[in-house]
Design a protein around this nucleic acid. Structure first.
Length: 641
RNA sequence: GCCGGCGUAGCUCAGUUGGCAGAGCAAUCGCCUUGUAAGCGAUAGGUCGGGGGUUCGAGUCCCCCCGCCGGCUCCA
């Protein structure tokens, strides 16, 4: 019998009879591999276990434990869910059903929206399909056949029509459900052991708000019940960290229906944290050659007409009319950005190349009328404060400025907060953008070179830049692995052009400066939200609104407690005394719940010895300490030390 | 903005087929005088998100609005 030879990832070769399939190869290598194999990567393409191997193929078996193995499972789970929906809702039409991070979804066109009971019924039907262990069968068809097979399925037909000429059209069938699909899939439905449907949502067909809204069902799927349980636990843990919940429990901020959606009101403890952040960042910026500005919250509308925001983003701005009393009515707008003020500072004088770079920062509060469906606690508010800055510089300075910003990003995100982060560079949007080609080229190259100079890897988001310039976005990773976009560094050709900014060069010619926008924390609100969730409310001592609480054991220790408080306050420690007439353990429970870093228990022993009994919120009882030792303890995580 | 769900005391939540609005915690007042994660007793606390409608009667059913939650779209 003729033989073929395939190469394996370790460089080894394996001979197999002609016509052998991937599953045969897996079996030939070993029974354990065969049992956990899901699909294979053949010459870089993912294929089913049924795929017939050709001579000389490079083959890598994809197992359950591989990343692709999980996404194949989830994709297959989506097909099974679609089959269940087809069984229960015969008139349903089908959109797309991909695997996503941690799960999958499928979009359906149905006569009425799904409700939670439907979800249970669909899940029950899925379990039957899984129990029956039906195989996934692949077939390849021509375009016309594919079109005919999806009678009454407008979305599928649209997808087929949009497939490129050169693409192979493949269909997968399990049971009575056939889907247009590239594959691969798990061998049969029994592999989908551990899954759960999680939520229902509306979703526009192809993500286009002008097209029909379909019903999307989300689910998650894993190879074992243990993994599924771990995932569900992870979700629960994330919910416990929800900054909206903790913000309420820790008395940091609130929202009020009468005030309006998306407008956070900071209580003293929340305000304290924000000010602590600013008071730490401000000297750091001075050290790095920034100057601080304070600019108005409102401007006459003319400013926004010049900047272009009136036309581009007017719908998201707050406008109001003021009767000046002399027959004139002026229109003003609340600022959605801090740039104009900084531009006016630059433009207030004749500027020389010697003035550059000019780095102006501001903790600037802005208001944007975000669409009602998107406001989300502190993460997406309508009023928020940016740690904003604008750098006016010569073209040849752009590179060094970006490098300096990336250094600042690293200091803040990594050195101070310990976040891992990654970078993305967004390039010129094709079609709608302003500025000369060479400017875009120089700016984009500066961003890339700066990343390279700092050894910062980046991904490219082709055409995702702003209309006025390219940008670097920094995404950080929090304690439980979620990513958040905070820092952004943008090059702007729009403002200098529209406001006619110039400076005199060394050759005494006139030139237009480059303008760089940048935020490090991004929105202070959002960053606070991220920190709350990252620390699960247990702020490090240097950011804790209350660093220590003094806990008198009995009323007779109140005087000494107040002594301790006064002495610590004098040394800059943020301290409260729990003077309520309650047993100590109740005060400790309250302080623990408030996630206060240190509790100082004072009773007869401490009052006599002039000491305190220190309890660390996570370590527990640390024993007796002097106040000097407490001050040292409280300050030891401060990044400025 | 779109789809779906939700809104009851400061907080977390019960409230049956439409028939007198409840609990725990917190608060207040007593008692206890406390040694490392939740004592005891009493009192007070409500336009049931707002408005309109159906009904003898609405927290409960219907409509509109506001807000919140999960997504979609958006995030200059």
């Amino acid at each position: 019998m003729p033989q073929i030879t395939v190469t394996l990832p370790d460089g080894g070769a394996k001979s197999l009879p002609e016509g052998a399939r991937v599953r045969d190869l897996a079996a030939a290598i070993g029974p354990r591999l065969a049992a956990s194999s899901i699909a294979a990567r053949v010459d870089d393409a993912l294929v089913d276990l049924d795929e017939i191997l050709h001579d000389g193929a490079r083959v890598e078996i994809v197992t359950e434990s591989a990343a692709e193995g999980l996404s194949i499972l989830r994709h297959s789970a989506a097909h099974v869910m679609a089959e269940a929906v087809k069984d229960l809702f015969p008139t349903a039409t089908f959109g797309i059903g991909p695997a996503i991070e941690d799960g999958f979804y499928y979009d359906f066109g149905v006569d009425r929206p799904f409700n939670p009971e439907d979800l249970e019924a669909i899940e029950a039907r899925m379990r039957e399909i899984v129990a029956s262990a039906v195989p996934f069968k692949r077939e390849e068809v021509d375009r016309l056949t594919a079109h005919d097979r999806f009678e009454g399925q407008p979305f599928k037909r649209e997808l087929i029509a949009d497939l490129h000429e050169s693409e192979t059209i493949s269909l997968y069938t399990q049971g009575n459900f056939t889907d247009l699909c590239r594959g691969p899939h798990v061998p049969d439905t029994s592999r989908i052991r551990a899954f759960k449907l999680t939520k229902i949502a509306g979703a526009y067909w192809r993500g286009d708000s002008t097209r029909p809204m379909l019903q999307r069902i989300y689910g998650t799927a894993w190879y074992s019940d243990k993994d599924l349980a771990a995932y569900l636990t992870r979700i629960e843990e994330a919910e416990k960290r929800d900054h909206r919940k903790l913000g309420k429990e820790l008395d940091l901020f609130s929202f009020h229906e009468i005030a309006g959606a998306g407008l956070p009101i900071y209580h003293p403890k929340g305000a304290r944290i924000l000010r602590l952040l600013q008071d730490w960042l401000r000297p750091e910026l001075y050290r790095r050659g920034y100057v601080e500005a304070i600019t108005p919250h409102i401007y006459k509308t003319d400013v926004w007409k010049i900047s272009g925001h009136y036309d581009f983003y007017g719908e998201n701005m707050y406008f109001f009319q003021i009767d000046e009393g002399d027959g004139r009515v002026n229109e003003y707008a609340v600022k959605p950005m801090n740039c104009p003020g900084h531009v006016m500072i630059f433009d207030n004088d004749v500027r020389s190349y010697r003035d550059l770079p000019m780095r102006i920062f501001e903790f600037g509060t802005v208001y944007r009328h975000e669409m009602s469906g998107v406001v989300h606690g502190l993460m997406r508010a309508r009023g928020f404060t940016q740690d904003d800055a604008h750098i006016f510089c010569a073209p040849e300075q752009v590179h060094d400025e970006i490098v300096a910003m990336l250094d600042l990003v690293d200091y803040v995100m990594h050195t101070v907060f310990g976040f891992e982060y990654s970078a993305e560079i967004s390039t010129r949007p094709i079609g709608h953008s302003i500025g000369a080609d060479d400017m875009w080229e120089l700016a984009t190259k500066s961003l890339m070179d700066a990343c390279a100079a700092r050894g910062l890897a980046y991904e490219i988001n082709e055409g995702d830049g702003a209309f006025y310039g390219p940008k670097i976005d920094i995404k950080l990773r929090d304690a439980i692995g979620r990513t958040w976009q905070c820092s952004t560094i943008q090059v702007d050709f729009n403002f200098p052009e529209r406001f006619g900014l110039t400076y005199r060069t060394a050759e005494n010619t006139e030139a237009q400066p480059f303008m760089l926008h940048r935020t490090i924390l991004g929105s202070m609100e959002r960053f606070l939200g991220i920190l709350i969730e990252h620390y699960a409310g247990a702020f490090p001592s240097w950011l804790a609104p209350v660093q220590v609480v003094v806990i008198p054991i009995a009323d007779r220790h109140l005087d000494y407690s107040n002594d301790v408080r006064a002495k610590l306050e004098e040394r800059g420690v943020r301290v409260e005394v729990y003077s309520d007439n309650e047993p100590m353990r109740i005060k400790i429970a309250k302080a623990q719940q408030q996630k206060v870093p240190y509790m100082l228990v004072v009773g007869d022993r401490e009052a006599e010895g002039g000491t305190v009994g220190v309890r660390d919120r996570s370590e527990g009882d640390l024993g007796s300490r002097t106040l000097d030792e407490v001050v040292e303890l409280v300050g030891k995580d401060d990044p400025r030390r």
